[in-house]
Design a protein around this nucleic acid. Sequence first.
DNA 1: TATTGTTATACTCTATAACTATA
DNA 2: TATAGTTATAGAGTATAACAATA
Lengths: 143, 143
Amino acid sequence: MSPQPPAPDDLIDPLAAVVRGYYDHFSRAAARHGLTTAQARALNAVGRSPLPMRALADHLVCDASNATGLITRLEARGLVERTASAHDRRVKLVAPTAAGAELIVRLRAEMHGVHQALGALTGDERAALAPLLHRLAPLLDGS
Amino acid sequence: MSPQPPAPDDLIDPLAAVVRGYYDHFSRAAARHGLTTAQARALNAVGRSPLPMRALADHLVCDASNATGLITRLEARGLVERTASAHDRRVKLVAPTAAGAELIVRLRAEMHGVHQALGALTGDERAALAPLLHRLAPLLDGS
DNA sequence: TATTGTTATACTCTATAACTATA
DNA sequence: TATAGTTATAGAGTATAACAATA
């Protein structure tokens, strides 16, 4: 009466399908505002709190020179700003401008499909999903 | 005693964290084999079953000319093959070579972190997660 | 000496437009 | 006419190497 729980391997493909679905929605939302996926990721990252270039590159898991290019293009569009750090003159902090912050809000709101998909779950399903996502996220982080 | 289920909005960030974790692991596994993320995605897609170029572009949600470039590079590395369709002479079917199929197996096995993360869940948690992923995936598909 | 950020360079990713071959 | 695939082109993403400024 107690069936075997699924093996980790059996969860990979379903998880991959969810990841792909989320990613596609994100890319399309970014494209609707003329942003590439990479730009939207960078903008979103500095939206939480201003980040040094180095920390941004770490977050995006990319080379520092790549972050330079991304932020240069976002800055050219008036969406982010570079400001000198008060504590370490080598460091530049990246933060969204007012326009950038507004766009972040819009991007998050325009994840229509994802909100809709989550809304299509029953209350019980959402109640069951939440703690599992919170458990899983830190396990996937880093390394 | 029955707390409110979380609103869809409250699940977005935890879901995003899981997606980012999975994506980072995938990118790193690809990089370990000298593949870009886009190349690994394409290789993986044709690994399930041979696909026409058109169907591959649809799966990757990209332009057909982009798929041409990706497959040309994978073909140059001996990982995939283009073969003419028997039914429609316009169509080319893309399939992995023996080396490509082998690499796909290795890539999937090398999602260390993801397997580990799922394995770190209890049996009960995995049993609860599986049906939720299966519910959610189709809701996120398309559009 | 080590670290932060940038520049120069080369290759890959990606879409648009124009093209060929086939349906 | 419409569709499958390619090529040419241009801009963006990405890493490597070399560099200046600061710690």
